[in-house]
């Protein structure tokens, strides 16, 4: 089986990461922002996997498992925060949650 060239994997990871980042920046709905952050995390994970397969090392996969674990924890905290924001402000718009300005 022909190995997929490493550049393809890294470019895919880069595109995913940029997509996630841009949507974090332009989205106002907080749930979409959370999903975008997840995309960025997975892009980073993909980069690890690709790098691991390149050097035939298990480190990349271990790092991916770490990222998954961290993402699970982060989502639980993030969802709890979202619930609180919705409870307080009756909206999911992040621009409405600007009461802590300087």
């Amino acid at each position: 089986m022909n190995a997929i060239p490493i550049e393809y994997g890294l470019i895919l990871a880069g595109i995913l990461f940029m997509l996630g980042m841009v949507s974090v920046l332009i989205r106002r709905n907080i749930i979409f922002m959370l999903i975008s952050v997840e995309i960025m995390l997975n892009a980073a994970g993909l980069a690890f996997i690709v790098a691991g397969s390149k050097w035939t090392q298990a480190d990349g996969q271990i790092m991916f498992i770490f990222i998954l674990t961290m993402a699970a924890a982060e989502v639980s905290v993030g969802l709890a925060l979202i619930l609180q924001i919705y409870h307080q402000l009756k909206t999911l718009d992040t621009d409405a949650a600007n009461r802590m300005r300087g």
């Binding site: 992040t94 600007n98 300005r101 300087g102």
Partner: peptide, 18 residues
């Protein structure tokens, strides 16, 4: 001046980090 950057809009903060 720095206090003005604390505008409470989260996307600004993200942009700052990026």
């Amino acid at each position: 001046a720095f206090a003005m950057t604390q505008n409470g809009v989260m996307r600004w903060y993200v942009l700052g980090i990026v």
